[in-house]
Nucleic acid binder design. Structure first.
Lengths: 187, 187, 187, 187
DNA sequence: AATGAATGAGGCTTCATTCAT
DNA sequence: GATGAATGAAGCCTCATTCAT
């Protein structure tokens, strides 16, 4: 297995186990075994257990930011950017449904005082929104509030969908959410 | 110290320590010491560590539900119920600012698979909203989505406020949030 | 077993195992097992492994200093103090023959940078010697050199005896050593 | 780098690291890195970690024996052989001051039960002394005691000098030590 | 009921050693 | 011969939980 493949395997195993059983209950030995490598190999790639979780968080966030921007750019006019963005985010969430619990796994991370998860997403939302304000498309509200509430609405939508994660529901939830976004932020 | 006072002391200690250092890093001995009781006494009142956290969650949620309903009832007409409700929630959050991190501490609870935190709040929000729909005051949208998104908006607002938890900001954040609620849910 | 008995048992076990197998090769589990207690109990009495060794060092040194002074005081006149002192030290060494290797176990003690073993003995030797100088019985030489060399001579004598630790040899070694001390330090 | 240069580099690195941090805390990877070679190369030259330490001990001892004999031979008459020998030993010790802690690193060597460090020096001392006895220059005392105590006196002198390792002190310590040797062993 | 000493399973992490490249 | 990634056994230590006093 090439070194990159090993890193990939370890992250995949950790992602699955952390999401399934929780961070603390999962042992580094569990991760190594599930990845098909030795414990020592995990430690050569990630200095310790918190770092492994941090790497997963980072990657997950990068993916969400990526699809979010992609979706946003699909919409031609400003109000029409919401729907494709939300669809894109939910698509990613659907694809990675079983690892979504990772999002809740920050506070108990040992020594994570400085790790600010979701910050990249919140900042990205703030930027996209500000562009819309500059373009005269969105109402001018407090940008901090906007970013946090905007992000939270997506989170809430995802949790709503999680109560019944089927395709028909996906349509209902994303459409409702897009409508709420429009009502909330569009002039 | 009477048994009730002991229970109170233990919960207060645990609340503070869990919030400050995280659930896993806090030991039962830490809790006992901070509460001024013996470890055995903690175990006589709470069967195990997860139960202690669950009790804290439950109490915190009950408090939030209480002030939320109280605030809601302060508003005379339906659209005017949002602002006092939000103010009440934020007041409670401000009062208990340092224990808010407890909210993030559910996923990693050992064996907590079946513990659904915030459910009482989400259900209460759903009920209040449904009343408003029945009264013809609110738009009819998917109630699941509504409840989750409504709750998430409050969470997001709280997080926004946490970035600068001062009294002037409190006003800005609550007013903005009330406005977003009105735009989102009022007919 | 009373708490003090537990401490005694742990120290006895550690002393024997460290001396027999070396410090690093001996595990805390070995010590606990040999002492008939749980690992956790060892850790309640000694914060970590180096502390356990340090406690042994301290006790061993205190014992040696005790018998050394006792022996010294047995001698009436100054030159006659050497022989009983040396006999006393060797008596103690004979009694604890199998733990003498502990003396060599300082350098590799993790984080022992500040632990100065034998310092109490060296200082005691310096003091006894200085008294003799003040009384006009001993030659005046550099006290630092005196103390270190005096201590080393005892060490060397002990090692010489260790090559054949029998009672007849004990007599030969202690008498020779006393003679060397007299020649070296007496006016 | 030729194989011999590699051996030299590894020993130099190990010597420095063992002396600085201790034997157990130093890893074979540390040694390899400091020597600028791969771990595997260390293992091609030294079968395992204890062997590496043994090689260092052996070399250090050979050096001391070498300078000791050289110094000894500088003295014309028997009593005058002590001073140059001691000066030579201390010169070597001064040159290699920072690696002197290696001397303390024998007992904890894993599986070193059979390794008797300093034996070459002690035997050499015994031989030189016996020659002096045969030549009628030294008092006849137990040779085992003589050798061990003689060696220990040098050790003690070195430790005394270590408490203030300056050139002026060097003179004081070596002269005092030579005097003690003369008093102790010369007829 | 209260106490806190005792227990020991189990986690994280290290590192000597090997061996495929 | 050289490299250094891989291995996995094993150690230190923690801490939830129990139970004798």
């Amino acid at each position: 297995m090439d070194p990159d493949g090993k890193r990939v395997a370890i992250m995949a195993a950790a992602e699955r186990l952390f999401a399934e059983q929780g961070y603390t209950p999962t042992t580094m030995a569990d991760v190594a075994k599930a990845a098909g490598v030795a414990v020592g190999s995990v430690y050569r790639l990630f200095p310790d257990k918190p770092s492994l979780l941090a790497a997963l968080h980072k990657r997950m966030e990068a993916r969400f930011v990526g699809v979010m921007i992609e979706g946003w750019n699909k919409g031609e006019t400003y109000p029409d950017k919401f729907a494709p963005m939300i669809v894109a985010i939910f698509g990613e969430a659907a694809r990675r449904r079983e690892i979504m619990p990772l999002y809740a796994m920050t506070k108990d991370m040992a020594g994570a005082a400085d790790y600010a998860p979701n910050m990249l997403m919140i900042e990205t939302i703030a930027r996209l929104y500000t562009d819309g304000v500059d373009a005269g498309a969105f109402r001018q509200i407090d940008p901090i509030v906007q970013a946090h509430v905007g992000f939270a609405m997506v989170e809430g939508g995802l949790r709503a969908w999680m109560t019944d994660p089927t395709t028909p529901r996906l349509t209902v939830v994303t459409e409702t959410l897009a409508e709420l976004f429009r009502r909330t932020f569009v002039k």
